Amino acid sequence: MDPLIEEQFIPDRTILTVSFRETSIETSIETNTQKIFPNLNSNERKIISLIIDKPQITLDELEKLLSLSKNGVRYNVDRLKEKGVLKREGSTKNGVWLIRNENDEE
C-alpha cells in the first residue's frame, strides 16, 4: 500500500504530511513468509517471522507474543522441527533457532 501524502500551503510555509500504516510491515512479513514457506499454517508462519526477527527467542516469549498456550507453542514448534524447517542449536538458555527453507538441501 502506498503512503498517504497530504500537503497544506500556508503563506509562510508548506506542510507535508506522510502517513504509513503500521500493519503494512506485519502484513509484508506474513506475505513473504507465506511465499517462502507455503506449506505452513498461520501460527507456524508467525513463529518463523518472530524467529527471523530474534533468533534467540524463547518459547515463553513466543507464548506471550502469539497469545498461545504453552502447549500450543510447543505443538507448532514441534511441527516445524518435524518438517525440517526449524532447528535449535545450543543450550536452552543461550541457544538460537535456525530456519531452513523447505527447498534447502541438508
Rank of each mutant, 00 (worst) to 15 (best):
K93G: 09
I10T: 10
E89F: 15
L40W: 09
S24Q: 14
I29T: 05
P11W: 12
E106I: 06
D60C: 06
V77I: 04
I15Q: 10
D104N: 13
E82S: 05
I57A: 00
D60I: 13
L50T: 01
N39Y: 12
R21Y: 01
L86H: 06
I5T: 09
S67D: 15
E44P: 00
E105V: 09
V18F: 02
E89R: 15
P55A: 07
L59G: 07
R100A: 10
L65H: 09
E105A: 10
S91H: 01
K35N: 11
L80R: 00
M1F: 09
D104L: 12
D104R: 12
R45E: 03
G90A: 12
L86Q: 12
P55G: 02
L80G: 01
S42W: 06
R13F: 06
E89N: 14
E61Q: 13
N41E: 04
N71C: 05
E63R: 13
L4K: 12
P11F: 07
E105L: 14
V96Y: 14
N94P: 04
E105R: 13
S24Y: 11
K35L: 13
L16D: 01
L98K: 15
T17G: 01
E44T: 00
T58V: 09
E106F: 05
S69V: 03
I25H: 02
I57N: 04
E7N: 05
P38G: 00
Q34L: 11
S28K: 11
P38T: 01
K83E: 14
V85K: 04
N41K: 03
R13N: 06
N76E: 10
L40Q: 11
G72F: 07
T31I: 14
S67Y: 14
P55S: 12
S49A: 13
E26M: 10
Y75A: 08
V85H: 03
P11R: 13
I47K: 07
I57V: 06
N76P: 00
G90V: 12
K54T: 10
I29K: 08
K87D: 15
G90F: 13
N71L: 14
I48N: 05
D12W: 10
V18N: 02
T17W: 04
K93Y: 14
P3Q: 02
E61G: 00
I5M: 03
Q56M: 11
E22K: 06
S42L: 11
L59P: 04
N71F: 08
L86D: 12
E44C: 01
E89Y: 15
S42T: 08
R79C: 08
N76L: 04
S49Y: 06
I57D: 06
L98N: 15
V73G: 01
Y75I: 02
P3G: 01
T14V: 11
I15S: 06
I10A: 09
G84C: 03
I5F: 03
F9S: 12
T33R: 15
V73A: 03
K46L: 12
S67T: 13
I57W: 07
K83W: 09
R79P: 00
E89Q: 15
I25V: 08
T33D: 15
T17E: 14
F9M: 12
L62I: 02
F37I: 11
K83V: 05
F20H: 05
Q56H: 11
L40I: 09
Y75S: 07
R13M: 11
V18Y: 00
K46E: 13
